[in-house]
Simulated scan of single mutants.
Amino acid sequence: MRLTEHELTVALTGAAKTVLASSRRGRKRGADIDQTWDEMDRFKRFKLLDGIGTQIFPVLTDLPDTDVPVGGRPSFSEEEIKASVERQLDDDIGRLRRAVVVKTRVTLVQAALSHVPPRVEGDLRQDG
């Protein structure tokens, strides 16, 4: 799947905020997730973004290219995402761990895709 740098950045940040909101810290505080995000220091945000990015970027780039109309967002079935996740995994992990990793990464990729902004005119244009 071809995504712009802006789309990838927004998708990754959205997925990170989703993970943060579901963490013990996010649930316990009950605070606005954007405020919690802003209160985090840059290194903590980097560590969270890096950890999630290493899991979802290979999957996002492995998804099939689709034509996304202006104003639309890319969408994929759970089976397409799951197949892409499974292609990225090594064979040296056990069945149970593999099942957990696949389910978690599919959920992360779905969260990232839900945060991709609508496509605007000129995104991914091919110049000559």
Rank of each mutant, 00 (worst) to 15 (best):
E79S: 11
L48G: 11
G14S: 05
I33G: 03
V85F: 10
F76W: 01
D32N: 15
I81L: 02
K103I: 05
R27I: 06
T4W: 04
L3F: 10
V10R: 10
E79I: 12
G30C: 11
M1Y: 07
E5N: 10
R87L: 11
R42T: 13
L96N: 06
T61C: 13
A16R: 00
L108Q: 13
D41M: 11
L63D: 02
S23D: 12
L89F: 05
R95Y: 02
R105P: 07
V19R: 05
R119N: 01
V10W: 02
L20N: 02
G94F: 04
I93V: 15
P117V: 05
L108V: 07
G128L: 11
H115R: 05
I81N: 01
V116Q: 01
Q55D: 14
Q35C: 08
D91S: 14
L124P: 12
A99I: 03
F76V: 06
R119Y: 02
I93A: 05
V70F: 01
G30W: 07
A16P: 05
F76L: 03
Q35N: 13
F46D: 15
Q55H: 13
F76N: 00
G122V: 01
T54K: 15
L48S: 10
H6S: 07
P69F: 03
D67L: 07
A15S: 09
L20M: 12
R97D: 11
R27L: 14
D50N: 15
L49Y: 02
L108F: 09
G72T: 02
L63M: 04
E39S: 14
S75Y: 01
T104S: 15
D32G: 15
F43M: 12
S114Q: 00
S75Q: 00
A21P: 03
V70W: 04
T4D: 04
V10C: 04
I52H: 05
V85I: 13
D50A: 15
R42V: 11
F46T: 14
L20F: 02
S77D: 00
K82E: 09
R45L: 02
P64F: 04
E39L: 13
R98T: 06
V102A: 06
L108H: 08
E78S: 14
L96P: 00
R29W: 09
K28W: 06
V102G: 08
T4K: 02
L49A: 10
A99L: 11
Q110S: 08
T13F: 00
R45P: 03
D127I: 14
A31Q: 14
V102D: 04
V100C: 09
Q88E: 12
E39M: 14
L108C: 04
W37Q: 07
P69W: 01
Q35M: 12
L113Q: 00
R24M: 08
L60M: 11
V85A: 10
P74N: 02
L48E: 10
A83C: 00
Q126S: 15
A83G: 02
R87N: 08
R24I: 09
M40F: 06
T36D: 04
S114R: 03
E78G: 11
S84F: 08
L49M: 14
I93E: 07
F43R: 15
P64D: 04
V106R: 06
T104N: 14
D127M: 10
I93Q: 07
V59W: 08
V59R: 10
E78N: 08
D90Q: 07
E7L: 03
L113Y: 01
S77I: 05
K82I: 03
V68W: 01
D65S: 13
L12I: 11
L96R: 06
S23G: 11
D65G: 07
V70E: 06
